[in-house]
């Protein structure tokens, strides 16, 4: 565990907590894309399937449980919570996210490290995570009023993968040259998608 990866995990955790706080404190999810939250829930379920089979560390297991339960809680709130669900802008959140799931799945069938169920699920979750933010970015560009908690949520989410890229660079030079091309390419695409958001976020 290196500082970049720990910072990345903490930034990622913080982004989820900011979103949970916003929804819980304001009892509103206006400006939040439910589709992006659903995609993240699929990403975590597909990637953390090994939660019960491979024990890596207490930290690793605890964080996996936290990410799965928090993303499920956010989706539940946006779908079932009587007050919150009313504030969801269904007409604005129109990105066809099924296309993203299908594309990531096809990519994972073609480009994976080994043609096994686990590796294909892992690659699928990496590809899907790279594009999961798209519905949210589209919603932000449509909505005039980006409330600052939602803006901070997206900012921390962009920063987390940027830290992971630094982590991969660090591990490349310290741990030998594992083939990380799936993580590299997806991580760069993922962080790149935030570029225009960061540009406007800082300009505002």
């Amino acid at each position: 565990m290196n500082a970049f990866r720990f910072l990345g995990d903490m930034t990622h955790l913080f982004s989820v907590l900011v979103l949970l706080l916003k929804i819980y404190a304001t009892k509103s999810c206006s400006g939040v894309s439910r589709k992006t939250q659903e995609l993240y829930m699929v990403v975590f379920l597909a990637r953390y399937m090994d939660l019960f089979t491979d024990y890596i560390s207490l930290y690793n297991s605890v964080m996996k449980v936290v990410f799965i339960t928090s993303s499920a809680a956010i989706v539940w709130c946006m779908r079932r919570h009587p007050q919150v669900r009313r504030t969801y802008d269904k007409e604005q959140d129109t990105f066809r996210h099924v296309v993203l799931v299908a594309a990531a799945f096809v990519l994972a069938l073609i480009f994976n490290e080994r043609f096994t169920f686990r590796e294909i699920c892992w690659a699928f979750s990496i590809y899907l995570e790279a594009v999961a933010i798209l519905p949210q970015l589209v919603l932000l560009q449509r909505g005039r009023n980006v409330d600052n908690l939602t803006g901070q949520y997206v900012f921390f989410l962009g920063a987390y993968r940027a830290f992971y890229i630094l982590n991969w660079i660090y591990r490349y030079f310290t741990e030998g040259h594992h083939s990380r091309w799936i993580s590299w390419l997806s991580g760069l695409v993922q962080t790149g998608l935030y570029a225009d958001f960061f540009y406007y976020y800082f300009l505002r």
């Binding site: 964080m63 892992w122 594992h178």
Partner: peptide
């Protein structure tokens, strides 16, 4: 050594 990427990351 193109070992597969370790899955110890979140």
């Amino acid at each position: 050594d193109c070992l597969s990427a370790p899955k110890d990351e979140l």
